[in-house]
């Protein structure tokens, strides 16, 4: 089970957002670190098949990112998680489950299970517009894993979560990473340092570091700041 990115490039009129990235990703949690504007979201969108690369290929078990079966293996939580305000949490998950091809009975079972996992059991029948930011984010996480994805893409998943929820979420990700390729994009180092099996650091569309935490002889945050010239905002 391998997700292969081969010279993936995304070029806009006057800017190269992602520049010839080549990586092979295996099951485990992959932390994608980088400052805002580094190209993380663009890369993730291309991996999700919702943004065509200007050049290069993305494939998983012989399937191209544009294939329906590739999407069947995919779970995605976008950075700006959207929802339908008048849907309840349960309605939304059932809708997403149908989109992901789950049968109604299976979807119902899975939705109940996940609502419990993300601690939204009691709010399942409340409209999403009444949810707090953290609750919405947890709902987003639940929808991403509805289909037991083999490739799970999480773009800034911890934003809006309180410290307790972050810990709970990290444990969930670590669990999912045992059987799936989990790509977790963030600019918060502490989100990935304890659970990531592999770290990818992006800067100006390029991978500037690809390795395990054990390969780094210092604290990840220090290393990260060093790589980014002492400031995350650069």
């Amino acid at each position: 089970m391998e997700l292969i990115l081969d010279r993936v490039t995304k070029q806009y009129a006057s800017k190269i957002a992602v520049d010839r990235i080549t990586v092979n990703l295996k099951p485990g949690v992959i932390g994608l670190l980088g400052a805002n504007g580094a190209g993380k979201t663009t890369l993730m969108r291309m991996i999700c098949g919702i943004l065509n690369p200007s050049s290069g290929t993305i494939s998983f078990e012989g399937m191209d990112a544009s294939d329906e079966m590739y999407r069947d293996a995919l779970g995605y939580l976008p950075q700006d998680f959207g929802y339908y305000p008048n849907f309840t949490g349960m309605d939304f998950l059932m809708y997403m489950a149908a989109l992901k091809g789950l049968d109604k009975s299976e979807a119902k079972r899975k939705c109940n299970e996940l609502l419990k996992t993300v601690n939204l059991e009691n709010a399942a029948n409340k409209k999403i517009k009444t949810y707090s930011g953290g609750m919405k984010q947890r709902l987003g996480i639940a929808q991403a894993v509805l289909n037991d994805p083999k490739i799970l893409i999480l773009d800034e998943p911890t934003s809006g979560l309180d410290p307790k929820e972050r810990v709970r979420f990290r444990n969930l990700i670590a669990e999912l990473g045992k059987d799936a390729i989990v790509i977790l994009s963030t600019h918060i180092v502490s989100d990935v340092e304890h659970i990531a099996d592999r770290i990818l650091m992006m800067k100006e569309g390029n991978i500037i570091f690809d390795g395990n935490i054990s390969d780094i002889n210092e604290d990840l945050e220090t290393f990260y700041l060093k790589e980014f010239g002492g400031s995350e905002d650069e």
Binding site: P78, G82, Y84, G101
Partner: peptide, 12 residues
């Protein structure tokens, strides 16, 4: 609603 990315990346 910013739901387009989730929809387009789903099987159906």
């Amino acid at each position: 609603h910013r739901t387009d990315a989730m929809i387009l990346s789903a099987k159906n």
